[in-house]
Design a binder for these strands. Structure first.
Lengths: 341, 341
DNA sequence: ATTTAGCACTCGCTCTTTAAGAGTGCTAAC
DNA sequence: GTTAGCACTCTTAAAGAGCGAGTGCTAAAT
């Protein structure tokens, strides 16, 4: 267990390091008004904190910097509790340009606002369109062989894809098919359409459609979804202004990481409601080992549908950033839910 | 007028600089097998070429590097003529993963291929969907006030937007409107829909629609387009591996530029068919002053519909890159036109 | 009239050296 | 338990030396 004094010193040191990005020595700490001990005493405490793994040295006679464990402890135990902070700030107002009309604009602007406010990189993971419910679908022929299938969701989102029409199918049959789908499957989530058809509609199809056999392949083509979350970025190049990444060889992997959709999706996805903080190697990717990632989820009708995230150096201004992210995600949730009224 | 020897020396020097990215001195040039003159002679020529503005020195006693004017001359007069090069290479085969089905995939892959092959940054400017012709449109109500308008083009592209329904409009009227539009405006380019309506359809509307007065605003809302070209990137971070941008303060503006949609659109747009090369300040933007941009247009049914571009340092491997870009843009044109059969 | 050898001179780089400064750990005294 | 004092370590910046690549100019050679 850490003593009160150790906790205090640890917090002061990390605060200072976050602010100045330079190893902190005993003298610096002792100079603070609220510190009554001499540098020597503090040196002893620092040595202990280092033994415990909360601090590190960059070289034998340098000041200390927080270790990953140090940051983790700081975030978990030394941050002024969120609820307090929140009430202090009140509801922050974010500067959305005019009233945003479409969800995409909201996400895009949120990412931009967040990165502007923090000077870190931010990413919004949009909702998976496939989780939305079918409002209406349609198949529009482009040529004799190719058609466009369109799915409109209850949220007003439009999914579309080109499909190849089987030679055998007749226009009237196609129309029938579309009608059946619209009648029976309105309100079903896109992702579930295919299984629902197989479970419940084969009988109906057999009854109304001539060539049900060949339809199978066509339906599969029609309803084979690939993942469809969209990513919205803000401040992609902000990393370059972080002192710890002043070195090209250090930023390169980072920027490459940001450009790799798969990795980013994984990094930013989170099934949990609320706020998640991952520090350094907790992100489980080499390129992110000196970064922290904070994910905040936004919801619709109480259900988690996406996240807004901030990526910065492990030395992040956690306090500021957490309350920002917290209120912005709430604001997003509010606006989103206003849409559906 | 430059003498033969000057031309030769200029070309050798620029070739060498492009290859090694280091100021080239008289000794280096004289060591080449096909050079019979002594360093001293070459020094004299170099001094002349410098006076003429084709070369520069980084400091008083350094070797020479090409000036912007030098590159321009090199590209215009010293490059082995394209037609020759082409026949040498024959039709290069590009490695598109399986047969690309949709135009978007083609653009995306083209950009990736090009940046992989060159180690520069590439951008494809997609066709403006608004130049495509209306195949079919539809309005699908989401709630009592909001609807989604969908426009399918002859190329199978889908444009959609949310619109606010006027209180006054009746569902049957809406249906009539959509029918009229589909009957009368199929084949018209999206961008022209609005003017066509005003010129030709006001009579029809007056005849068939009850509340033609209020319809005006609604139509404007429905048909107010904003630019819709899409950009596809490849190798966004490749700039970081160019020796001339080894410096963070040099790359930062560049990367920022790449992230700014407006600027990129302008940079990469070109109305000309064929290949355009812009060197350094010819790009008319501070951030691009040390870059060259090569735009190649791809066409559909003989009409220029978009460009594929390469952005690299002014010291680019022009020869390689030009023939690459040339054949890739042709390949794109081919594949695109295959789509429409 | 070209071309070339020779030479003095200029920069930019790299390597050392030096000195200053910040910080530590340890010991001994308070 | 706390602190003053001190030797020691390591980083950083500045200054200087030496090298190498390159130039421009002059005078001799072709």
């Amino acid at each position: 267990m850490l003593t009160e004094r150790q906790l205090f010193i640890l917090r002061v040191l990390i605060d200072d390091y976050i602010k100045h990005v330079e190893p902190v020595g005993s003298r610096t700490i002792s100079k603070r008004e609220d510190i009554t001990y001499s540098p020597a005493t503090i040196r002893n405490e620092l040595a202990d904190l280092e033994d415990l793994g909360f601090l590190e040295k960059t070289h034998t006679s340098s000041g200390r910097i927080p270790s990953e464990k140090g940051y983790r402890f700081y975030v978990d135990h030394l941050l002024p509790s969120l609820s307090m902070k929140e009430s202090e700030i009140g509801h922050s107002e974010f500067l959305f340009t005019e009233k945003v009309q479409e969800a995409e604009a909201l996400f895009d602007q949120s990412a931009k606002i967040l990165s502007d406010l923090t000077n870190y990189t931010s990413v919004v993971l949009g909702p998976n369109a496939l989780d939305m419910k079918l409002k209406h679908m349609q198949i529009i022929p482009i040529s004799s062989q190719v058609a466009v299938a369109i799915f409109v969701t209850n949220t007003g989102h439009v999914e579309n894809r080109q499909i190849v029409l089987p030679d055998t199918i007749e226009p009237s049959e196609l129309e029938k098919l579309v009608n059946i789908l619209n009648e029976r499957l309105a309100g079903v989530r896109l992702i579930e359409l295919n299984t629902r058809i197989q479970k419940e509609l084969s009988a109906v199809f057999k009854k109304h459609l001539k060539d049900y056999q060949n339809m199978g392949v066509f339906l599969d083509q029609l309803l084979l979804w690939s993942k469809k979350e969209k990513l919205f970025y803000g401040g992609k190049t902000n990393m370059l202004s972080q002192p710890e990444f002043r070195d090209l060889d250090k930023v390169r992997p980072l920027l490459d990481f940001l450009e790799t959709r798969d990795l980013m999706e994984k990094l930013v996805s989170s099934t949990e409601k609320g706020l998640t903080i991952r520090i350094g190697t907790e992100n489980e990717h080499e390129a992110m080992k000196n970064c922290s990632v904070i994910n905040a989820s936004y919801t619709m009708h109480g259900k988690h549908i996406g996240t807004i995230s901030l990526i910065g150096p492990t030395r992040m201004e956690y306090q500021k950033v957490i309350s920002l992210l917290d209120s912005l995600s709430k604001e997003m949730t509010n606006i989103l839910n206003d849409f559906s009224n």
